[in-house]
Design a protein around this nucleic acid. Structure first.
Length: 476
RNA sequence: GGCGGCAUAGCCAAGUGGUAAGGCAGCGGUCUGCAAAACCGCUAUUCACCAGUUCAAAUCUGGUUGCCGCCUCCA
């Protein structure tokens, strides 16, 4: 089955064909680094992380470019509020971004360019736009003239006339059209500036992406991605700038992911419900966050709630419980020695091929895990041939989804530490109680044993008596 | 005002013409001292509502209702 991608430009799924066979060139709009990453940033990063991982496992060479917007009004304003330098501020949040996203097991992009390191390219593009009369100068400012570009509105499905009518855009008398957007802003006192043919100033927001994508991926590349909110005006403007210069399509496939809501409300500063990645990571394992983010289709909105994370947590625990049943070395030493069709992996790929349907892909993982559990039950935990055949498929799925990378012991140990620190409990105390109960059980003092179990249950601890003794964990 | 999206079991969530994936919760069973975990079985005659097209519709068309997003910085 060929890979099909929903293309925002045409509003339908299209068969993916890279410009150059075997190579995928993809550009994703990265964060403006003026604040900590929230769960919405995580969705963007994880979504494209899985897409890129999938391309790689399918044998593509992936050139993945994700930028940092490190010069912008928001950064300058924030820096002023904090009486710091914009450069220092953006540096700080770039580091935070890496901390958060590394923690989430997101692989780094191939190239991670910053706007401020591409001023030269930006200026050169603006010069061309001015030469070709797509842009005009007003004092030290350069604006892009939306009317000069025929295709303006083709991505967002808007018409210039419609937008002007109800526009809430501030009327700036100097612009030819209210929707004209700035390519270059003249310097204001105290702001970072660069020399340009139009005097000291700094780039507008949209132009950096055109400059950097062009530099690293060429005039036309395969995939351009970002959040749905970027469709207009950001991506619309990128198309205008880039295509005005090249006369060729900026990109062949536009991928836009949906938002994360918090308890059915939009995340916003005014509602004070911005959920930071680093805060969620204090409570949940990274896999849990990834599972949550990938359990719905990337284009749908998803709703963050405590309940959703608890549920995701239960599923991740279930997966690790399976891995725990298999000697760790055995997990990696298995290799399929026969040529039968890889049922689960094929089903997983079919799902991924259908516009990266991670929900169905995860369902396939569940099915595979259930079967291995069943086979282990049947064989009394002996690794049989059938199991050796399914395990590598599970590992391949795991590698695409980017979860289950910890050794199970580590996962369960972390889970305990995470919860005990939250609940003011002490692992030694808990284990002492469990020891007491085990002694009682050996003495067949069931009442005492059940009493202790009851007590632990009240501490939200659940016990499992197995052949090799009792293991415990917190309820999700 | 303009553009777009969504509505599937108690909850989350796939499914875009061929008779409802998966997860959570629930019920019954195997296992267990009893549990838990794991596994097995059951759990939507039906996909917001009303018409229409079709041999066949959750899926297509028209309409109604309800939610949501974008049009201003936003992942």
């Amino acid at each position: 089955m060929p890979l099909r991608i929903y293309n925002t430009l045409n509003k339908k799924k299209e068969v993916f064909e890279p410009l150059e066979p075997g190579v995928v060139r993809i550009y994703v709009c990265g964060p403006t680094v003026y604040d900590s990453c929230h769960i919405g940033h995580a969705r963007s990063v994880v979504t494209f992380d899985v897409i890129v991982r999938y391309f790689k496992t399918k044998g593509f060479d992936v050139i993945y470019v994700r930028n940092f917007t490190d010069i912008d009004d928001k950064i300058i304003n924030r820096a002023q509020e904090l009486s710091t330098d914009p450069k220092i501020l953006s540096e700080k949040y770039i580091n935070e971004f890496y901390e958060d996203m590394d923690a989430l097991n997101a692989q780094r992009a191939t190239i991670e360019p910053r706007a401020t390191e591409h001023i030269e390219q930006i200026i050169s593009i603006i010069e061309t736009l001015v030469e070709k009369k797509f842009a005009y100068q007003v004092n030290g400012d350069i604006y892009f003239s939306v009317e000069s570009f025929d295709g303006y509105g083709k991505l967002s499905g808007r018409k210039l006339e419609d937008m002007e009518a109800g526009a809430r855009v501030e009327i700036d008398e100097r612009k030819k059209n209210p929707l004209d957007f700035s390519l270059w802003k003249s310097a204001k006192p105290g702001e970072p500036t660069w020399a340009s043919p139009w005097g000291m100033g700094r780039p507008g927001w949209h132009i950096e992406c055109s400059a950097m994508s062009m530099k690293y991926l060429g005039m036309t590349f395969d995939i351009h991605g970002g959040g749905k909110d970027l469709i207009f005006p950001h991506h619309e403007n990128e198309i205008a700038q880039s295509e005005a210069i090249s006369g060729n399509p900026l990109t062949r496939y536009w991928i836009h992911h949906g938002f994360v809501n918090i308890n059915q409300e939009k995340m916003s500063k005014s509602l004070k419900n911005i959920l930071l990645v680093k805060d969620v990571l204090k409570k949940y394992h990274p896999d849990v966050i990834r599972y949550f983010l990938l359990s719905s289709h990337y284009r749908s909105p998803i709703d963050y709630s405590e309940n959703a994370l608890v549920e995701a947590s239960g599923n991740i625990t279930k997966f690790y419980k399976l891995l725990e049943r298999i000697p760790y070395k055995k997990i990696f030493s298995t290799n399929k020695a026969n040529n039968s069709p890889e049922f689960y992996w094929d089903r997983f790929c079919d799902a991924m091929d259908d516009d990266f349907n991670t929900a169905v892909a995860l369902a396939t993982l569940h099915d595979a895990v259930r079967e291995v559990n069943r086979l282990l039950d049947e064989s009394n935990n002996i690794i049989t041939h059938s199991i050796e055949f399914i395990l590598p498929q599970i590992l391949k799925m795991r590698d695409v989804i980017g979860i289950l990378l910890d050794p199970p012991e580590k996962y369960f140990r972390n889970a305990k530490t995470l919860k005990t620190s939250h609940k003011n409990l002490n692992i030694e105390e808990i284990e002492l109680l469990i020891k007491e109960r085990s002694d009682a059980r050996k003495a067949k003092d069931w009442d005492k044993a059940d009493n202790i179990r009851q007590k632990l249950d009240e501490m939200n601890i659940v016990l499992e008596d197995g052949q090799d003794g009792t293991v415990w964990q917190f309820k999700a």
